[in-house]
């Protein structure tokens, strides 16, 4: 026993040669990461400190100085008077409806296109493929006319219809995923006498769960952060998160302490989502981008 431990000791004590190059690389690595994190933090820190200052403090102290006395009223003002609460509520409504819509239409389209091979489905698939070429943002010049004629301008329906109807990436994610679900699963359903609607609802849909999760994450991030669509189509009385924040700075006089509080309130939901679903977010967003 004793001998053994002695042997072990001697192995541990054997000194490793010092690799200077390795130390330099390590130091450099941590330095790069530290600088990166400081770069991320500094602009945000100014906002966090600013949100707890009163208007005098904001004018008289430096952006990165702590508040002379901590104030919490800014949050209340931004939340109620600044309509952040209303913005969050409206955004939630739009996200829920759009997500349900996208999952329904996306999975159904993918199911038909992927499973029923024929001239018609191939043609429709090509049409969806062609649509990915069109740059969404400048298309709005003419989409606006259609929205206006359909009477959807300044309603919740305008952004929802666009989020559901022009989201081709989701269809691709579903199709990609469906191609990995073996058709023998459908066939076994057919042998058991299940109808196609039954196959879709009890075989396909449950098996698509991971793809649905991916699409939900992409949609949530996309809609929550979208400024362009609601700014163009929704009325000022029914703001979403982005347009509420924009209204803070587009007025004549900007009350920075309220703006900062508003920003923090709007980022908290994102932060919570990120911390709870971190792993899925990395995978989801990357897989969404690769298909683009």
């Amino acid at each position: 026993m004793k001998e053994r431990s002695n042997v072990r000791h001697s192995v541990i004590r054997q000194e490793k040669p010092i690799y200077w190059s390795r130390i330099i690389v390590k130091t450099f690595s941590y330095l790069v990461l530290a600088i990166g994190c400081i770069m991320v933090f500094i602009p945000i820190a100014a906002v966090i400190f600013g949100a707890f200052k009163d208007s005098k403090d904001v004018a008289n102290t430096g952006a990165l100085e702590l508040p002379t006395h901590w104030v919490f009223d800014n949050f209340k003002t931004a939340f109620i008077d600044g309509k952040v609460l209303k913005g969050l509520g409206n955004t939630a409504i739009i996200i829920v409806v759009s997500c349900v819509g996208t999952i329904m239409t996306g999975t159904m389209t993918a199911f038909v296109i992927q499973r029923f091979d024929g001239k018609m489905t191939r043609f429709i698939k090509a049409a969806f493929l062609l649509a990915t070429l069109l740059p969404n943002i400048s298309m709005q010049v003419t989409v606006f006319q259609i929205m206006y004629k359909l009477g959807l301008y300044r309603t919740f329906a305008a952004p929802i219809v666009l989020y559901v109807g022009t989201d081709i990436i989701s269809i691709y994610i579903f199709m990609q995923f469906l191609s990995q679900i073996p058709t023998s699963l459908d066939e076994s359903g057919i042998i058991d006498g299940a109808s196609y609607p039954r196959i879709y609802f009890s075989i396909i849909l449950p098996n698509l769960k991971p793809a649905i999760a991916t699409v939900l994450i992409i949609k949530f991030v996309g809609i929550y952060n979208d400024f362009y669509t609601p700014n163009l189509y929704m009325s000022e009385d029914d703001p979403v998160v982005s347009t509420v924040l924009y209204s803070f700075i587009s007025g004549k006089r900007t009350q920075w302490e309220i703006v900062f509080a508003g920003i923090i309130l709007c980022i908290i939901p994102t932060l919570i989502m990120f911390l709870t679903l971190q792993k899925y977010i990395y995978n989801g967003l990357v897989s969404g981008a690769v298909k683009e």
């Binding site: 990461l33 990166g36 994190c37 991320v40 933090f41 602009p43 945000i44 100014a46 906002v47 600013g50 952006a63 991030v221 929550y224 952060n225 400024f227 998160v241 982005s242 347009t243 924040l245 924009y246 803070f248 700075i249 920075w256 703006v259 900062f260 920003i263 709007c266 980022i267 994102t270 932060l271 989502m273 990120f274 971190q278 977010i281 990395y282 967003l285």
Partner: peptide
Amino acid sequence: GILFFPYLMNGVAVSIIFKK
């Protein structure tokens, strides 16, 4: 996580932060 988080932040919020 820290380096990725700005990507998730609302674009308007980011823009205002940098306006300041």
